[in-house]
Design a protein around this nucleic acid. Sequence first.
DNA 1: CTACCTGGAGGATTTACCTCA
DNA 2: TTTGAGGTAAATCCTCCAGGT
Length: 232
Amino acid sequence: MLEYTEQMAEPFSSAIEVTAATTTTTTKKNKNKRRFSDEQIKSLESMFESETRLEPRVKLQVAKELGLQPRQVAIWFQNKRARWKSKQLERDYSILQANHDNLAGKYESLKKEKQALVIQLQKLNDLIKKPKEEGQGSAQVTATSCKDGDKGETTVKSDSSMGISGHSLGVLSDEDSAIKTDYFGLEEEHYLVSMMDPADDSLTSPEDWRSFDSDGLFDQSNCGYPWWDFWS
DNA sequence: CTACCTGGAGGATTTACCTCA
DNA sequence: TTTGAGGTAAATCCTCCAGGT
């Protein structure tokens, strides 16, 4: 920012002279262009802070008070609005850039965290599977009925000997309980395994997740999927 | 020092568009 | 509906000045 010096002010005793020089001819239109005084700028700045546009009546009054032409005041406000706007854009850009960098950092750390959890999950799955394979042998027959998204009670059919016993009443027989335990044991395993699969590819590229509102990112209310399924 | 060059700041102009009487 | 005046934003011009070489 340039400072208005006495040296600059010296050749022109008043802004009115400047104006007169700038408006009389076209060839010399900018010959005597000089900056406004500190006082004039200060006054214009404070007016701009309270109101970015001037009513014609106020403009005339301000021009009179500052010894400027109303046209000069109007032009000063025009330039001020334009240049303020462009600086504001720069500020907004900086803020967005900082937010983006921050979000990208969070994304990367969550990605790593998820990766570590997946590995841990795989190890746990292996631990769960081993004892089953060793101890149960052919007991996995019922596992074939466990399809994606199926719920236990609707897929476990009772055989003819059971009739409409416990199922329709919502009461579990001992056999049912056994089946259910087995079933849910398997379902849990299935569930755990399913967590390994990417449920949604919509957020796998920065282009996609960048469009997301970061505030909603950690909202766990979208039930049904574990939150880490969004981060593959 | 002095001269020259260059980039930024800021006052002013031009142009296109909008609103309103 | 048309028209002219007045206002604005955006782009640009033009001058001045500080700082580097």
